[in-house]
């Protein structure tokens, strides 16, 4: 029962935080600097690690599938479709959001929790500046702007990871042209669009949850660490949980 109440409270608090942030959408034109700063931070810190992860995921996917199909004549011709669809429908967006949670979400929670513990958030309140307006809204908007770019980047890098394996591994008998032709044949605009919808939704949720955990930190410095752990773990669980249902809706 306690856990159910905790989940209801968690969902409710995040929904209210989101709505309270949206109330200040009219001030967004005055916050361009903060949005750009956050977008740069999110993109700059996530891009290198997304590149590494995506290229290896694409490569491993091609390697595993190619190995499994090596004794089935013609099956390897579909490696392009397998890597292409997996990357753009599932692995690209979900991995990008996982990295967002681990790399950026943890940083957001730590920063806001530190501001809360050291009274900076209280100072904002006493200045009649809602923390949602300058601390949450710019981060949500920056995430919404950056996530599609990061996801497309992740997908494309993953595809290239696949083609590297196709070209250089002996037991895979197809060439790069066959890989790309098959990939283009099966990957449609809708597949990419579905991936981008997931990335956008999960990315905003990660940022929202991490902001919420930061702003609700009470106590001393030890609580900052706990808030970071809570933020990252909650984000990942929410991504995994919603991924199933969103996928089902988008299919």
């Amino acid at each position: 029962m306690k856990q159910v109440l905790y989940i209801i409270e968690f969902v409710g608090n995040n929904v209210f935080l989101f709505l309270r942030s949206l109330l200040h959408i009219g001030t967004l034109h005055r916050q361009c600097g903060r949005v750009v700063e956050q977008a740069f931070f999110i993109g700059y810190t996530t891009l290198p690690i997304i590149s590494i992860l995506s290229i290896f995921i694409g490569a491993v996917l091609a390697l595993q599938s190619g190995f499994t199909m090596r004794n089935t004549p013609g099956a390897q011709n579909f490696l392009g479709a397998i890597v292409g669809l997996s990357m753009c429908r599932e692995l690209g967006p979900v991995m990008a959001c996982f990295l967002l949670a681990g790399r950026v979400g943890s940083s957001i929670t730590a920063e806001l929790a530190s501001m809360k513990v050291y009274n900076e958030v209280d100072a904002l309140v006493t200045m009649n500046i809602p923390p949602e307006r300058i601390l949450v809204l710019p981060r949500l908007v920056a995430t919404a702007l950056v996530m599609p770019l990061l996801t497309i980047f992740s997908i494309v890098i993953g595809w290239y990871g696949g083609v590297i394996v196709v070209e250089h591994v002996d037991f895979i008998t197809i060439d790069a042209n066959t890989y790309w032709t098959n990939l283009k044949q099966f990957v449609r605009y809708d597949s990419v669009k579905d991936g981008l919808i997931k990335a956008e939704l999960f990315g905003i949720l990660v940022t929202l949850i991490c902001c919420h955990e930061g702003l609700h930190t009470e106590g001393g410095p030890r609580e900052i660490g706990r808030a970071v752990t809570r933020g990252v773990v909650s984000s990942m669980i929410v991504i995994l949980f919603l991924d199933y249902f969103v996928t089902k809706v988008l299919l």
Binding site: N119, E120, T126, N128
Partner: peptide
């Protein structure tokens, strides 16, 4: 009330935005 009357507080540790 705090929008009508301008109130401000100097916090113990300053609470400056780092």
């Amino acid at each position: 009330t705090h929008r009508e009357v301008v109130t401000s507080m100097v916090f113990q540790a300053g609470a400056l935005f780092n």
